[in-house]
Amino acid sequence: NLAEVVERVLTFLPAKALLRVACVCRLWRECVRRVLRTHR
């Protein structure tokens, strides 16, 4: 699944970079939201 791969990669990025990549597309924005939720 593409979303799972994107989420896996996003887990390695710092928070500032996550906010930046959330603007790329809807899929990435949803993935960033899930990554941020799991880090809390």
Rank of each mutant, 00 (worst) to 15 (best):
V24G: 04
R40H: 02
R37Y: 05
K16D: 01
R40E: 11
V21S: 06
V6C: 12
L27P: 02
L13V: 10
V35E: 00
E7M: 14
V6K: 04
E4I: 02
R29M: 05
R33D: 05
C23T: 11
V9I: 06
T11P: 01
V9H: 01
L36V: 09
R33P: 01
L10V: 07
L13Q: 02
T11E: 09
V24M: 07
V9R: 00
H39W: 15
L18D: 01
H39P: 08
V24H: 02
R26H: 01
T38I: 09
R8K: 12
P14Q: 15
R20P: 10
A17W: 14
R29C: 03
W28K: 01
V32Q: 03
R37P: 06
F12L: 10
E30Q: 11
L19N: 09
H39F: 15
T11A: 15
R26P: 01
W28M: 14
R29S: 04
L36W: 11
L18F: 09
R29Y: 05
L19Y: 07
L18G: 09
C23I: 09
V32M: 06
V32L: 08
V5Q: 05
E7T: 07
L19Q: 15
H39N: 08
V9A: 08
V32F: 09
C31T: 12
P14V: 05
L10T: 05
L19T: 12
E7H: 10
A3V: 10
T38E: 05
F12C: 07
R8I: 01
V35S: 02
W28V: 15
V21Y: 08
E7I: 09
A3C: 13
L13T: 05
E7W: 12
R37I: 06
C25I: 13
T11F: 07
C25D: 04
V35F: 09
R37H: 05
L2V: 00
V24I: 15
L13D: 01
V24K: 09
V21Q: 03
H39R: 13
L36M: 12
W28G: 08
V6N: 00
R34S: 05
R20G: 15
C23G: 13
C23L: 05
R33E: 05
R37D: 07
L2T: 06
L36H: 01
V21N: 08
V5P: 01
R8M: 07
P14H: 15
C31E: 03
A22M: 08
H39A: 14
V35K: 06
R8C: 02
R37A: 08
A22K: 14
L36S: 06
T11K: 13
L19S: 11
R37T: 07
C25W: 12
R8E: 01
V35W: 09
H39M: 15
T11Q: 11
R20E: 02
K16P: 04
A17L: 13
K16N: 04
A17S: 09
R37E: 05
L18W: 15
V9F: 07
R29T: 05
C23N: 11
R29P: 01
V6S: 02
R8L: 01
C31F: 15
V32S: 02
H39G: 14
L2A: 00
E4Q: 13
T11V: 14
E7L: 09
R33C: 04
V24R: 07
R20W: 09
W28P: 01
L36P: 01
R26E: 04
A3Q: 11
R40P: 07
